[in-house]
Amino acid sequence: MNLYEMTQLYKELNLPESLFLTRDKGGQAYQILETQLKAIPDKHPLLVVFPPDQLVDGSFADESIIRLGEAIVTGDFADRSILLQGLTSDSITNIEAVITFRKLKLAFLLVEPTGDWKCIGQLEPSLLETLAIVANQTHITAPELADMKGLAINSASNRLKRLYNQRLVRREHEISDKGLQYIYSFWNWSE
């Protein structure tokens, strides 16, 4: 698993233990996280691990994690993504406050070593439901989702594509006699 321990920033950015604060430091953290993310193979996630009892303030989050999330959505990192681990509820509140203030349609996967996960940020209920379905399958295609939820194939395809656009799921493709087909799957962070 490709992971980055945020405790490494204590030394690199001269941060006090457990406090990830200020826009300046967030901007410096972005440069480091950007380098880390670009260094991993495409179609893989970077697991960003936060220490226990940490506090990430809104400014730091805006300049680091949220900026990274926006760049991922615009495709700056190809098919790579980030998964967040260990964020406290107060840090999550600050991150979600920034996403709300800035009216961003941005969501992150918050994952645990046990395999549990949850989505933070802004994600429509229908996409959240679809994300949970993808998470419970080894992989899924639009016709399979359509069949499962009684949706039109276009609708199912659209939901999966929107999750992929946010890199909340992985996407592969295959070409068969039926033409091009996309296969979606959830990220794996327990390798």
């Binding site: 604060l21 200020t22 506090l55 303030d57 400014s59 107060d90 509140t93």
Partner: peptide, 21 residues
């Protein structure tokens, strides 16, 4: 207690950062 403590720390951080920025 939490979350009051982290609320206070977030407030201090944001207000003080505004001063120097």
């Amino acid at each position: 207690i939490l979350p009051d403590l982290n609320g206070l720390l977030s407030v201090i951080s944001e207000l003080c950062a505004n001063v120097y920025e």
